[in-house]
Write a protein that binds this DNA or RNA. Structure first.
Lengths: 230, 230
DNA sequence: ATTATCTATAGATCTATAGATAATGC
DNA sequence: ATTATCTATAGATCTATAGATAATGC
């Protein structure tokens, strides 16, 4: 009762705090706030439950901290997008980018962090949507504005001639395509069969569908869509 | 301790069972299996917790029964789709149908059942995906096959000329568009701004985007897309 | 007699805290 | 001396069952 205490390696408070955040993330992502117990959280980090409460006042606050942590560490490929000029070529690149990022990441790697991030977003859709809102804002706002200005430029260049009621709908529709792809790939079970094996071909088809959907002329698509050079 | 027992109106076992299923559905949909307590389930139906266990052996089995109940009562507009001939006009109608169904339902009515159904699907995406799988199969299989055969017919009629790697990808992309629309509208918080107020206009833009994305010629779209007559 | 329903409660588990102990760094 | 960590446990809550009681239908 005295010297049986099993002690882990002692590390600094800040280090341990981040360790807890990191090991709690996949648990909360998969089982949600209510589905994860403090016992599981402690086991995942390899510490006692009491230690978790030294760093976070409650399970809820730990969950909140994880969301904040995720948002702070997610800086999309914004730099690339920001530097693009507003023209038809950039439009093609802008549409290709999220398709490539999401479809290739989710298929190829076992990059569980990406999946868990999406799971947190989906959990948020089932609660108040706050986290989903911040995620969409962080990740997509600049990209969306760029897409819109490129659509305007493409129209001025004569590469789009059909009438649009709104340009802002298109980036959202593209986002919907990739988001739903990601969501449907969260479970192990295969939910969709696109009839396309090759990942690059799938990215192609998603991108071409979207570009046609936006109303970009086939000639412009053929001129500017060369994924091998992106 | 003897005659203080508060008794509800006594109804038949089968009736009560369905009553429990129905009042448990919105709870499970919103808070998930682990987030809903037996106490809440009992209160929602207005019976004791013990009575719930007379009808269902466990909370998990009750949840399973709710999923089964939902699947059994969801018969999409399959009849309409099945009767359509495979041609370009049917393609346009087929794409319009889910857009109209989901976008109008979710926006106009306070038809909470539809939202809760989607919530159950989303919860399923966070677990094993079984329910989502059955939902997709039930609701979309016949529709998907019709869309594919219509695409083939439209190509034969000369209304689609671009090459496709696969026809089966297109119904899925359309499904993704409406599914993600529904998911993003689950929380009260407004997550997306399409820049279009009018619901019919929004259905239009979704549908036209998809039809163009499939590669249907603009002339065919103009010829066949007349939502007011659908 | 059978069925629907309740009260009461056991036993498990979960969240959170109190208080002790060992390692670290000044 | 301060900090990191643990054990032990209180108190709440949750799932599920046992057993009693009242209403129904034959």
């Amino acid at each position: 009762m005295v010297d049986l205490m099993i002690r882990r390696k002692r590390i600094s408070g800040d280090e341990r705090k981040i360790q807890i955040l990191r090991s709690a993330l996949p648990l909360f992502a998969k089982k949600g706030l209510s589905g994860t117990t403090t016992r599981e959280l402690a086991e995942a980090t390899g510490v006692s439950e009491a230690l978790i409460y030294k760093h976070f006042p409650s399970k809820e606050k730990l969950f909140d901290s994880i969301e904040a942590y995720c948002l702070s560490t997610s800086e999309a490929n914004i730099g690339i997008v920001e530097s693009l000029e507003a023209n038809t070529e950039s439009l093609v690149r802008c549409i290709y980018l999220p398709m490539y990022t999401v479809l290739k990441n989710d298929m190829v790697q076992n990059d569980m962090d990406d999946k868990d991030f999406h799971r947190l977003v989906v959990h948020s859709l089932l609660s108040d949507g706050e986290f989903a809102h911040h995620f969409l804002k962080n990740t997509y706002t600049i990209w969306r504005e760029k897409v819109e200005s490129c659509i305007v430029a493409a129209r001025e260049a004569g590469d789009i001639t059909i009438k649009h009621r709104s340009t802002s709908i298109f980036p959202w529709l593209v986002q919907h395509m990739v988001a739903c792809y990601a969501y449907k790939h969260l479970p192990e079970k295969n939910l969709v069969d696109y009839g396309i094996e090759n990942e690059d071909d799938l990215v192609d088809e998603f991108t071409l569908f979207a570009l046609r959907g936006i109303g970009l002329h086939q000639s412009a698509i053929e001129q500017y869509y060369h994924p091998s050079t992106f």
